[in-house]
Design a protein around this nucleic acid. Structure first.
Lengths: 243, 243
DNA sequence: TGTGTTTAGATGTCTATACCAGTTGAAATA
DNA sequence: TATTTCAACTGGTATAGACATCTAAACACA
């Protein structure tokens, strides 16, 4: 279980070991794990090393401590950090619905000043503009416009868009999106939205503007969406850094 | 600077001291701070104690380390990670506005089934219900209702609420909120919202429902807010987990 | 000039020990 | 029987020292 000769730090080995037990369900929520001194004796490692492993797991939200009582397994899972960073497709699948799209327009346009600023490119640099109605279980859910700098994503075709834009980006172009900023606001559906989303005029919509960045911080895409408020709730989980 | 006789742990004193230097701008981004051994010798404390302080600051995002080189000050991003997890007060200050509140009602009520489920308590368990109009620069911004299990937060008074509920919770009751889930949706202002927020009927509002959890995963509070869509944008940054 | 090599100093890992401060349950006491 | 006391746990804080690993600059050599 613990290999002292391994180049992998002992605390990290213990960390992974306990993490596995939790993820396998062998350690259940609110169950106490062995005490620091027990780990220390069982594996013949110092208590401070055990503490280093446990501290990391506490920071990651796997465990919580209670002075005088012990260390316990936490309930929630750590995942879901990318909620909202995923594509519409993944988002809908997650919600158990069948996603689909209807392409409204697809063209290359010169970037307007505001767009150029957000994508950190020069004015009038060519960008792809993709307008789609996004549907879930064949019901209109959102009206979405995506802007991609043409130099970053060459040779985009209607076919690729209809298949899976994200898959193309990640697998074929091997680009990884690392970070995204979202702005969320409420509004009343405008005329195009009323038409494409098939809602009454005066209906509320949730506007989401997302800017994604690559590993090196380059802005990669800007997506503006208008969601039908009666069908869509945006959910996300945040963790506070440990004190 | 460091008082060994103080009941406050040394590592925590050092932590606060360095944090201050960063927030005052006396330590600038990407600047190296003194080495662990320097701190250790200067204040006559052990290196491990220094490391405990620095590790906490690294976890909180104030510092970053480079093996073989040193420990450096991070760019001020810490706030952003808790965006949406912070209180209305902090949120507005962050946006450069002056927050204030007007208490509408404050009472203890028995938890209804739905609320009881969300706070993971039994039906009819007493909970505090606090209704407030939240203002920024003296303009109504949101209508907010907070529910707190009475057994977790004993002895709440109007005075405490008007001063700083969060400060009371964190400092006096020494409870730490570790995680929160938010649901965000768009809607049209209802009558009470129209009245309290001073908007026209038919105006869009952003509804945010937040559930906060303590370190051990216990649900701690439920906050329902209706924000004026014309004044409030919800912004958040997400990072994708490394693959 | 350019390329290895040494070296000082940084963080990273780990040990062994000590005492403090909550928690709990069993033993001693009223 | 009911209560109090206390010992044996728990995690929290702190020390001192050892060796590993990495970085960057100084140095030596071809």
């Amino acid at each position: 279980m613990i290999d002292k000769q391994s180049p992998i730090p002992i605390y990290h080995q213990l960390e992974e070991y306990i993490k596995q037990l939790i993820e396998n369900g062998k350690l259940k929520p609110d169950e106490a794990i062995p005490s620091e001194r027990e780990y220390s004796e069982q594996y013949q490692i110092s208590r401070m090393t055990v503490r280093q492993a446990l501290n990391n797991l506490v920071n990651d939200g796997y465990l919580y401590r209670q002075k005088g009582r012990g260390t316990f397994v936490n309930k929630q899972k750590v995942e879901q950090k990318l909620q909202g960073l995923t594509s519409f497709t993944e988002d809908m699948k997650e919600r158990g619905m069948m996603p689909s799209s209807r392409l409204i327009s697809f063209e290359i346009i010169p970037a307007e000043p505001q767009l150029a600023r957000k994508l950190d490119i020069k004015e009038n640099t060519p960008v792809y503009e993709i307008k789609r109605v996004r549907m879930a279980d064949n019901l209109p859910m959102a009206l979405e416009t995506t802007y991609l700098p043409a130099n970053l994503v060459k040779g985009l075709t209607e076919e690729i868009i209809n298949k899976s834009l994200y898959q193309h980006i990640e697998e074929k172009l091997s680009l990884t999106i690392r970070e995204a900023t979202q702005q969320i606001e409420a509004s009343i559906a405008k005329e195009t939205e009323v038409n494409h989303l098939q809602v009454d005029s005066g209906s509320p919509v949730l506007l989401i503007v997302r800017t994604s960045f690559l590993e090196d911080g380059t802005p990669f895409e800007l997506v503006k969406s208008a969601y039908r408020a009666d069908r869509y709730k945006f959910v996300h989980t945040m963790q506070r850094a440990a004190k």
